[in-house]
Simulated scan of single mutants.
Amino acid sequence: MQSLPGAADLPHTRTSPLQWLLTAVAVAAVVAAGGALTPDGAHAADGGQTGPDAAAADYPLDCGERRPVVTHRASADLDHDGRAETVAVVRCETGLGTAPSSVYVLAGPGEPPRVLETLLDAKQDMSVGKFAVRDGEISATLLGYSADAPRCCPDRERDVEWHWENGRFVLEAQPVRPAGVAA
């Protein structure tokens, strides 16, 4: 890149140690602020409770040579026993399309955390869109595919919720609707 004649004499083209220090402080502040902000569902969504580590769990999902990928996670005391469980949305990585998701409830303590219950199995061939854990309820939008829909483009969706009742998770599901249509 060529500089303009006389550009080296302009004050904004010269830097001083103070400018570098101020830049470093500003970058550090932005990085620190970014670390404090996390995507929805990345931390406990129900009273700040910390549950089992979703990344450390062994999932009953066959991904060949690769480990399953946790796409969403949230912790809360779902069964009201005073200890937080973690809900993890997990899938295998694929080169093309969207792999089906599984939804697991993890319990601890223990290393690795153990799968307490499978709420959605990848064999059901659905993906999880929206996901949240609030007030002890797990909610998700499940995305599905009709026979002629490509794996990239779900054409069916269904809102579901699970809640703890009488010692087990109970599913409440809305009717299936075309993808993108408001419930």
Rank of each mutant, 00 (worst) to 15 (best):
V105Y: 00
G110T: 04
L116M: 12
L142I: 02
C152P: 03
D62C: 03
D77G: 05
E65L: 06
R91G: 01
T118M: 06
Q124S: 15
V160S: 09
E161V: 13
D81L: 05
I138R: 04
D62G: 07
C153N: 09
V105A: 01
T71D: 10
D159G: 00
A107F: 00
C63N: 07
G64P: 04
D81M: 07
L119G: 06
G82C: 01
V115G: 07
D121L: 06
V133Y: 09
P113V: 14
D121G: 07
A88T: 06
V70W: 04
D121M: 02
R73W: 01
V69W: 13
G108C: 06
V115K: 05
D81S: 06
T118P: 01
L96Y: 14
P112N: 02
S127I: 00
R114S: 13
S102M: 06
A149G: 12
D81K: 09
V69F: 13
C63M: 05
R158V: 04
L106K: 06
V87H: 00
S127K: 08
G97H: 11
I138K: 03
R134N: 12
E117F: 00
R73K: 09
C92H: 07
W162C: 08
A122P: 05
G110P: 05
A147T: 11
G108D: 09
E157A: 08
D77Q: 07
V87M: 05
P109Q: 00
E161Y: 02
D159N: 12
E161S: 15
A84W: 00
L142C: 08
R151F: 10
S146R: 15
R156Q: 15
E157D: 14
V128F: 07
T71Q: 10
E137K: 15
D159R: 10
R83Y: 06
E111F: 04
D77K: 04
C92F: 10
Y104K: 03
G144D: 12
R67H: 13
P68G: 05
L106E: 01
A84T: 03
L119V: 07
R158W: 08
L78W: 01
G108Y: 02
G110V: 09
S139E: 13
H72M: 04
L142A: 08
R134A: 15
A140N: 07
A107H: 03
C92I: 07
D121H: 10
G97A: 09
T86W: 00
V128Q: 13
